[in-house]
Every structure is written in structure tokens, then in C-alpha cells.
């Protein structure tokens, strides 16, 4: 117990990194996943197929392999993303490690986000899309104005579980040079071998708190956009 509280700012910083990874790759995966979903249901056959191949590959590869690919293999092709360290936005600059981790998490999670969106689109009643077509809307218009707004409601629960999985997956970054919560737990435990169990429990509670916050927020959002049942 003392091990955690005497290093409390360190633990907080580690959880800060966890949350940072989660937020950046969460937004990244939502954007890229939505784009993939549009390709996946769109009228152009080759786009549909390309999105399907992407989803099949990334959903069936372990996240750790994607991390390995980006952190170990890509530098051999000449991409180590060192330049990220030199880019400053408002006095803050991300480390190449952070960038690589976000890239891996985004690539992996996008495949799941795409599938969540697609299943959401599938819940919109047939008649809605038909009506949109009947009044002469194009694919883009019926997507953005008729189907997507309704699909977004249905998509909140599956998207939430994808994002919670992402939050837990940020821990994989521990194996690639980022001292987020799990790496921090390992370091603390190595210094205080007798308190391993207590440290584990406190870090676990930290994760549970974040997971609960995310799922409560999603529940609130779901209630807010809910339409009265007819």
C-alpha cells in the first residue's frame, strides 16, 4: 500500500499516459473505422472488398504482432518516427514511442469499430433507406442524413465495448517502452517485491474506475439520444 501512495504522482502520471493513449487512439479509430465502414457498405465493389480484407487481416492478427510490426519491423524499412519528437504543438511534443503505440492501437481498433458501425447500419429499418432513395437522395446524402443518424443510436453499445477493449489494450504498450499503468505496476513491484499483490489490486481498481467512467458516459449518451419507443 505505501509503495503506491509514496509514489502516487508517478502512478497518476502512468494512468495519465494510459488515458492519453486511449483518447488519441480512440478518436483515431473512430474516424478511420467510420471511413472503413462507409467503404464496407458503399456502392463501389473494390472499396467493399478492400475494407473487408483490411478488417479480416487486422481482426485476426494479435495486437502484439501489430505493435511488433510498427516498433521493430518498420524501423528496418526506414520509418522510426523519430521526427515526431521534434514536432511541437503548443509547447507539447509526443514521443515517438507514444506515436507508434497510438498508430498500432488505431490500426487494430479501427477494424472492430468498422464492424460495430456496419452492424449499426444493419439495424436501421429497410424502409428508411428505401424512402431516402425514393425521394431522390444520393448514397452520400442518404448515408449522412437518414441512415447514419439512426445507426449512431444503435451503435453506441457495441462501440462502447470496442472502446473499453481499446482502453484495456493500451496496456500492450507496456511491452514497447511506454511506462503506462501496467509497466508502472511492474516497476513498482520490482522495487517492492513484498507488496506485489497490493500494487496489483490498486492498479486494477484504477482501471476499473476508468472503465466505469467510460461505460457510464456511454450510458448517459445512449439515454440522451434515445427516441421514445413507438
Amino acid at each position: 500500500m505505501e509503495a503506491v501512495f509514496s509514489n502516487f504522482d508517478e502512478v497518476l502520471k502512468a494512468f495519465g499516459l494510459t488515458i492519453g493513449l486511449f483518447v488519441v487512439s480512440g478518436i483515431g479509430s473512430l474516424v478511420f473505422g467510420a471511413l472503413l465502414a462507409v467503404f464496407r457498405v458503399g456502392p463501389v465493389a473494390i472499396m467493399r472488398r478492400a475494407a473487408l480484407v483490411y478488417v479480416s487481416i487486422f481482426r485476426n492478427t494479435p495486437l502484439l504482432m501489430i505493435f511488433i510490426f510498427i516498433a521493430v519491423a518498420l524501423p528496418k524499412l526506414g520509418y522510426n518516427f523519430r521526427f515526431i519528437g521534434d514536432v511541437e504543438v503548443g509547447g507539447v511534443s509526443a514521443s515517438p514511442f507514444f506515436f507508434r503505440a497510438c498508430l498500432a492501437l488505431t490500426l487494430y481498433t479501427s477494424a472492430f469499430v468498422c464492424e460495430a458501425f456496419r452492424s449499426g447500419i444493419n439495424t436501421v429499418p429497410l424502409g428508411q433507406a428505401e424512402a431516402a432513395r425514393a425521394i431522390g437522395l444520393t448514397f452520400g446524402q442518404s448515408m449522412t442524413q437518414v441512415v447514419m443518424p439512426q445507426a449512431l443510436r444503435a451503435v453506441i453499445p457495441p462501440l462502447t465495448s470496442v472502446q473499453i477493449a481499446l482502453l484495456k489494450n493500451t496496456s500492450v504498450a507496456a511491452a514497447f517502452g511506454i511506462t503506462e499503468a501496467v509497466a508502472n505496476m511492474r516497476a513498482l513491484s520490482n522495487e517492492n517485491t513484498s507488496q506485489t499483490a497490493m500494487i496489483f489490486l490498486l492498479v486494477a481498481v484504477g482501471y476499473i474506475i476508468i472503465v466505469e467512467v467510460v461505460s457510464l458516459a456511454s450510458y448517459g449518451l445512449e439515454r440522451k439520444v434515445k427516441v421514445a419507443a413507438r
Binding site: K168, N169, T170, S171, V172, A174, A175, A181, V182, M185, R186, S189, N190, T193, T196, A197, F200, V203, A204, Y207, I208, V211, E212
Partner: peptide, 14 residues
């Protein structure tokens, strides 16, 4: 709610 890697690391260390 707990990441698998956290569980794994704990079991390993303990």
C-alpha cells in the same frame, strides 16, 4: 474490467 496483461504481469511477478 482488468486488462489481461495486468493479470498476466501480476501472476508472473507473484
Amino acid at each position: 474490467a482488468v486488462p489481461v496483461l495486468l493479470l498476466m504481469t501480476f501472476l508472473f511477478l507473484q
